[in-house]
Design a protein around this nucleic acid. Sequence first.
DNA 1: TAGATTGTTAATCGATTAACAATC
DNA 2: TAGATTGTTAATCGATTAACAATC
Lengths: 210, 210
Amino acid sequence: MITNKNCIIRLSRYKNSLYRLQSLGFVKVFSENLADAVGVTAAQVRKDFSLFGISGNRRGGYEIGSLLEKLNTILGKDQVQKVVVVGAGHLGGALMRYNGFEKEGIKIAACFDIDPATYDRASRIPVLPIEELRAFVKDNAIRIGIIAVPDVAAAQVAEQMSNAGIRGILNFAPIRLKVPEDVTINNVNLELELENLIYFVNILNKTKAK
Amino acid sequence: MITNKNCIIRLSRYKNSLYRLQSLGFVKVFSENLADAVGVTAAQVRKDFSLFGISGNRRGGYEIGSLLEKLNTILGKDQVQKVVVVGAGHLGGALMRYNGFEKEGIKIAACFDIDPATYDRASRIPVLPIEELRAFVKDNAIRIGIIAVPDVAAAQVAEQMSNAGIRGILNFAPIRLKVPEDVTINNVNLELELENLIYFVNILNKTKAK
DNA sequence: TAGATTGTTAATCGATTAACAATC
DNA sequence: TAGATTGTTAATCGATTAACAATC
């Protein structure tokens, strides 16, 4: 329905800010407050909400509890989301051990690799042969996968994921993946992010020097 | 001068595609070719170039070699960029061992942490006490830092970086950092990326079900 | 009621694209 | 020259913001 990525990212931010406000004891919030907390305009907040049919109370603002419920439903946070990681290298390992996902209702169900030395079925998060990806994804109704393999292997992994039934891919490999159009890809390209920072640091430095 | 992040990201993509084309033996390229390779329109390519005063040859397109030179200068790739990492945990460790940075001319010069158990001055990339950050950054004229610490520590690290003279921060902690306006921040928020994927997977699924 | 805030429409802004004169 | 491609202006598109009538 709504396909603007920035808008959805803002919904996530509203949600996070609302939890903070709630933990501070607030029960209601005005678009103005929330806008300040997230760093957007009040009009943006109201517009975003109206896009999703979320309405408040003219004069009384929004009730945080019910607002959070609606946002959580929209964002699919009403159930734990299971994801798989492919690539048990340094990055894959870091992701498996990262505990920030849990509190967001995201669970890494398993990791897959081609190297038998990495396999570990007894681990809290099992590391399995890539050949088992398809069956595992089907059996566990997984729809999200994370690609944490070297760039030369990424295209093939994306295809395997797509064939297995995965419909959303978080890709850490610095290459552009081709997938069917019903598969969504979010890229995290660290080289690109750093290169970008370098540019802005350089021009701001030059501008100052003038 | 130009402050549109998307535009700079496209320059990086042009650069990467041009290297590929060059390695295939091409010497010249038309805006149309490059646009296809990167997935934008030919008008976008020409517009981006003209924004940076890059001109080609009417009728003859652009000469890849000199184009790459100009892009590399704009993107600061004419010299190795040294960066520091703060946080020697799983993510920091993965970044230190990631070898994709080197071929992009990005060198992690050192890592810093508060936990003495992580310190290792003899390592290829030394792991040092956070107290030494400031001196190290000054001595090595570092301007880019990566935050790979838990979210509760991120704000303080950002301030230490900023005070030490760092002007660009790649932040992996899922919180919004406040820094002086001459410091550029790029955020990599994995929870947000996954949450975003979940949304799009869910709605595409629902749309199909209709 | 009077006053404040929402919900939505219209205006603005910025980025992308189309079109075409300039020109190699 | 004739033809193809650039460089740039104008048109389009989409997203953000301002404004204000509706209303609690």
